[in-house]
Each structure stands twice: as structure tokens, then as C-alpha cells.
Nucleic acid binder design. Structure first.
Lengths: 108, 108
DNA sequence: TTCCATACTTAGCCTTACTAGGTATGGACG
DNA sequence: CGTCCATACCTAGTAAGGCTAAGTATGGAA
């Protein structure tokens, strides 16, 4: 369903500040008005992949009277990557718009 | 690179009228200002798949003094599918925009 | 006659993300 | 106290998607 843009979305979700996996899933769902209701099996492996790539770092956190969570943060490389991904998305969506629009500009 | 939107793009390319594979590739390249310079190995299998799904029909054509070409046309089901794909793309790109925008509207 | 652009085809692979299962804990409710 | 639910995390296996890379063939130009 996401096909190639998951990384950008996850990185963007962490731009506002560190967060844990479950919260990221809910933020993505909320901010996309339910368009992206991602399975945990989609997001967790992505987080692991992004961390392995050095774009995220993580640390265990246990809030008082709360449960153990893994907090993810954007690394410097992650910020750079996000910026690149944003540009790539801009080019991509513009090109698809141009191709699908085909002259008769589909409704705004 | 295209990730899930190839079909929409190919169908859209045929909306203006029948065309053959090679011409479709060039039209996509041109109309996306070189953003999508698709390999033949990307487009031809897509055409076969879309035809097998009943969204396209094809016929061999040999223009006078020219080479044998397979002309593809949108079927009725293809038109319907294209319309659906356009709506799906609209929802998808809007949601990604919302997630990547993150308040500070990335440069136009 | 050699080379290039056109034109079509396909097997195999790699990345990506989804399915489907599992583990564990805190809080609510009876 | 026991049960259930929401939270929170993890992973093996698989399917889908599209790209790589290779092959075939012909018309026209050099």
C-alpha cells in the first residue's frame, strides 16, 4: 500500500521529536486521517531497518508506572535522509500528477 | 521507483488513444520531464498484466514501410480502473503530503 | 555491412511491506 | 483475585512489484 515511501513517512513522524513505535503508528494514522492504518509488522521492521542504516537511534525507556518502550530519535543522517526523501517525493508526486492529469486537471 | 502506481500511469497514457509499447515509454518519459525513464522490462510486463486483467486489449499492426507493433487500447474496464486509480492516487498523495508537510509546508 | 534506433520478450532477482503468528504488562472490571 | 483489553514489542515467511540483464528482430543510415 505504501510502496517506497514508508521510510519518508516514519522519518517525518520523528521530526517533531523522539517517539516509540506504537505512538508512531498512531500518529501516522491520525495525521493521514486513517488513510494509513499500518500494521505493527509493517512499522517495526522499518524502524529496525532505519536504525541499522544509521538514520535512527533508539534507547529503552520506562516511564514511572508505565511500560517498557523503545524510544526512537532521528540522527543527523536521518534528518538529511528525510530532506532527500521529501525532495524525491516532491518530484515523484509532481510527475505522477502530470501524467494522470493528462490535460483535464483532475479535481483539486 | 514507481511502486504501485505504474498501472495508473500506463492506463493514463492510453487514455488519449491507442499506442504501442515503445511509444508509451517515450510518452511517459516526455510527460514526466524525464522523471520516469522506464525500462522496457518494466513496461512490457505491465502491459501484458493489464491485458490479462482485461483492462487493455491489443492488436498487431504493421504500418506501410514500418515495423510490426502491438497496439494497445483501453477497454471499458480499463477506463473504469483508471478512474479508480486516479482517486486512489489522490487520496494517497494527499495523505503523504499531510505527513511529510508536518506543519512547515515544504517548498513549492 | 555494420551500426544504431526502434520494437518486443522474458527469466530471475531484490526490495519492500504485509500476513500472521507470538510474547508480555498495566489497568479496568467483575 | 481472575479475566480481559489496550498497550507495546518482535519476527518468520511470503507476496507483490518492478528492475536487471539478456535475447530476438528489422528498418534505415553511415
Amino acid at each position: 500500500m505504501l510502496k517506497g515511501h514508508l521510510d519518508a513517512i516514519v522519518l517525518a513522524a520523528l521530526e517533531a521529536g523522539p517517539a516509540h513505535g506504537y505512538a508512531i503508528i498512531e500518529a501516522i494514522k491520525r495525521n493521514s486521517t486513517n488513510t494509513f492504518d499500518l500494521a505493527e509488522g509493517t512499522v517495526y521492521p522499518a524502524l529496525h531497518r532505519l536504525e541499522a542504516a544509521g538514520l535512527l537511534s533508539s534507547a529503552w525507556m520506562t516511564p514511572p508506572g508505565g511500560r517498557r518502550r523503545r524510544l526512537y530519535s532521528l540522527t543527523k543522517a536521518g534528518s538529511t535522509a528525510l530532506s532527500d526523501r521529501r525532495k524525491a517525493w516532491g518530484r515523484f508526486s509532481q510527475a505522477v500528477d502530470a501524467l494522470l492529469g493528462g490535460g483535464h486537471a483532475w479535481p483539486a
